[in-house]
Design a protein around this nucleic acid. Structure first.
Length: 336
DNA sequence: CGTATTTGACCATT
DNA sequence: AATGGTCAAATACG
């Protein structure tokens, strides 16, 4: 069932690509920007599809949670996680060739600040983040901010992200996501209509929203194709078009997204993303290690400042999110 | 007053 | 030893 749907999705993606190529063909010789945009789009979708295929083939729950310093918050006693280090049993010698690093899927994103001016934060991804650290990175001109999901303690959402400003382009930010959100930040009272969020749907939304993004997924586990794979491993994003409300006088790093969070939270549809296995819904923090899945998406957002005709409430917006998976991504709307 | 951010120190991994 | 990631106390913010 899963793989079937996934396969279908891939087919859809490919069709999408085809369509985009078609558009590109038409616009060749026209606006270079548009062409560029289209190529980016194509690349994005292609990469995504590839990633999906790869992931569908091999679905490995990379255990081995990476424990940080002094983090005694969660000791996973009941988790049968084979920790290579703490196991006192068999480690007389270090195996000569240990696996390089645990397989982590990474998704890195390069986002532009929406405004283009100085104190612009990167576009928010529709989730609430709490900053827990900042570090100077060698070779990088700007520090890297560390964020974790606000609901980590309450819901055990393990999603984290890192934000770092590009060395030379103050308007660009590198956002590295790892882990998926397992939290349910529904908020906004009105629980009138529960939308059956499907990964598929989320994927589609991603596609649509990320028009102009260059998503580069790097999964480094080319192991044997396993069966029983599922497509829930798909990353998701949603950049709210309303990202221009950064309060003045704040650093992009100092204030990640406080004001946006509320908004983002409100217009964030109840998408539940199963981390690795089936820990959807509420996640028990220390029980489901599920996976130290790190996802880093690499995207390149063009400077679409999303002027957005000031949508007021979240309602219309949320509704707007409910497009069907037949994405008729109309890029032309972006370039009149 | 509660919550989020700041910042130095700690720890793990390279 | 160096680098990167996280914690946690203190502080700022609403």
């Amino acid at each position: 069932m899963e793989s079937n749907g996934g396969g279908r999705l891939v087919v859809t993606q490919l069709s999408h690509i085809k369509e985009l190529v078609k558009q590109l063909e038409v616009h060749l010789g026209g606006s270079p920007d548009l062409c560029k945009h289209l190529t980016s789009e194509i690349s994005s979708v292609t990469e995504l599809s590839i990633g999906m295929i790869v992931r569908s083939g091999h679905f490995d729950a990379g255990h081995h949670r990476k424990r940080a310093a002094g983090d005694h918050l969660d000791s996973s006693p009941s988790a049968p996680t084979p920790s290579p280090l703490s196991d006192v049993s068999d480690l007389p010698f270090k195996t000569t060739k240990k696996r390089k690093t645990m397989e982590k899927k990474k998704h890195q994103i390069r986002v532009s600040s929406a405004g283009g001016a100085e104190n612009n934060l990167p576009v928010d991804d529709g989730h609430s983040w709490r900053k827990y650290g900042q570090k100077e990175i060698l070779g990088a001109k700007h520090p890297r901010g560390y964020y974790r999901c606000t609901h980590r303690n309450t819901q055990g959402c393990l999603a984290t992200k890192q934000v770092q400003r590009a060395d030379e382009d103050p308007t660009l930010f590198d956002v590295i996501y790892h882990g998926e959100h397992t939290c349910v930040q529904k908020a906004v009272a009105v629980a009138g209509k529960p939308q059956p969020e499907r990964n598929t749907n989320a994927q589609s939304r991603l596609q649509d929203l990320s028009s102009g993004l260059t998503v580069k997924t790097e999964g480094l586990q080319a192991t044997e194709p396993q069966q029983g794979s599922s497509w829930n491993d798909v990353p998701f994003f949603l950049s709210s078009p309303v990202s221009g409300l950064a309060p003045p006088g704040h650093n992009p790093f100092s204030t990640p997204s406080t004001p946006e969070n509320c908004l983002a939270a409100s217009l964030s549809p109840p998408m539940v993303s199963p981390a690795t296995s089936d820990s959807n819904y509420l996640c028990m923090p220390e029980l489901f290690q599920a996976g130290s899945d790190k996802e880093v998406v690499s995207t390149l957002v063009a400077m679409m400042s999303a002027p957005a005709p000031a949508m007021d409430g979240a309602d219309p917006f949320v509704d707007g999110f409910e497009f069907d998976p037949s994405f008729t991504i109309d890029i032309s709307s972006y370039f009149p």
